[in-house]
């Protein structure tokens, strides 16, 4: 038990060192670092989506909340010339408020019905972004958003390190919430809302809380992205992008905290790694998804346990077989 904990810690440390050295390893190639930043931001988005799923709520609107954070921060920075240290928290809080406002009326809706409502909620938010053209630039998008800092312009390395720090902080917070009483209540509600409320857990409150936490971090990642990419397009936050976030999580493994990290890390990178294939690059992604669906019921993060289980099982079978032969 203790041993596995130490080996886990060592693995984590090794991963951190590698992540820290990435700019050195790739020799500061801007394209790779750009993808690196995007992977990190996607990890925040998918991990925060998993927070919502923990409470048993299937949300297919997460990209829309990312978009709300991004656009709110972008508009504040561009039209009102506010500094990023104001716009980024403001974007996150805006996404959270919207999540709570949309979540409260639908606490009595569950399972597939909730998924459908969230789907339309997400589409509605993106439509609003398109309609508010005077602020957001409508369908053509919002450009010339100020960068995180003037000195960062044209550079990727500082962005990479800042995003890495942000991601680590977000993940630590999400980890702690999940492994606290709050996380336990979420998981309890997800397993049975009836039993959960019979022991005094306020289902509606904790579900809205999960939305608040999840949407906050989605908005945070979005707002950060606004200052990183400096242009935004509503197409990045529609229905399919939301579905893709769900897919990253499911392929990575919903049950494990590492699932979203592995899923977002791998699946976001695949089309970029195979960029040379041009329009065929997503095909590789599709094939990976099929492999995971057919061979790994608990996703990539569940692979280790799955293999261990199979190994134990085959060993047991061998033992019983030899015992039977004796």
């Amino acid at each position: 038990m203790l041993e596995s904990r130490w080996s886990k810690l060592a693995g984590l440390l090794l991963l951190l060192v590698i992540l820290f050295l990435v700019p050195v390893i790739v020799g500061g190639r801007p394209y790779v670092l750009h993808v690196g930043v995007m992977v990190l931001l996607n990890i925040i988005m998918v991990s925060s989506l998993r927070t919502i799923f923990l409470s048993g709520q299937i949300s297919v609107a997460h990209a829309a909340f990312v978009g709300c954070g991004a656009y709110f921060a972008g508009v504040l920075a561009k039209q009102f010339a506010l500094a990023p240290w104001i716009t980024i928290p403001a974007g996150a809080i805006m996404a959270m408020v919207l999540g709570v406002l949309l979540g409260i009326p639908f606490t009595r809706v569950r399972a597939i019905y909730f998924a459908m409502v969230s789907l339309f909620g997400g589409i509605f938010l993106v439509d609003l972004i398109r309609v508010a053209r005077t602020w957001t630039g409508g369908g053509t998008g919002l450009s010339k958003i100020p960068p995180l800092a003037q000195s960062f312009v044209g550079q990727k390395v500082p962005y990479y390190y800042c995003t890495l720090a942000l991601t680590i902080v977000c993940l630590i917070i999400l980890w702690r919430i999940e492994h606290s009483r709050v996380g336990m209540n979420w998981k309890a509600i997800a397993q049975s809302h009836l039993v959960a409320s019979s022991v005094g857990i306020n289902e509606a409150f904790y579900r809205v809380l999960a939305l608040a936490v999840g949407c906050f971090f989605a908005g945070l990642a979005g707002a950060w992205y606004a200052h990183f990419n400096m242009t935004l397009s509503p197409d990045s936050y529609g229905f399919l992008p939301s579905i893709f976030l769900v897919m990253y999580m499911l392929v990575g493994g919903q049950k494990s905290f590492a699932g979203p990290i592995i899923g977002a890390g791998l699946l976001y990178s695949i089309p970029e790694i195979f960029r040379r294939l041009g329009t065929a690059a997503p095909l590789v992604l599709g094939v990976v998804m099929l492999i995971v669906v057919y061979l790994m019921p608990e996703g990539l993060a569940g692979l280790y346990d799955q293999l261990k289980g199979q190994l134990l099982k085959s060993r047991e079978e061998r033992v019983t077989k030899s015992a039977a032969e004796d």
């Binding site: 769900v246 897919m247 392929v251 997503p282 992604l285 599709g286 998804m289 099929l290």
Partner: peptide, 13 residues
Amino acid sequence: IVLTLAVIVILES
């Protein structure tokens, strides 16, 4: 869900 998404990705590309 993952399966249908894989079908989307593959057929669209």
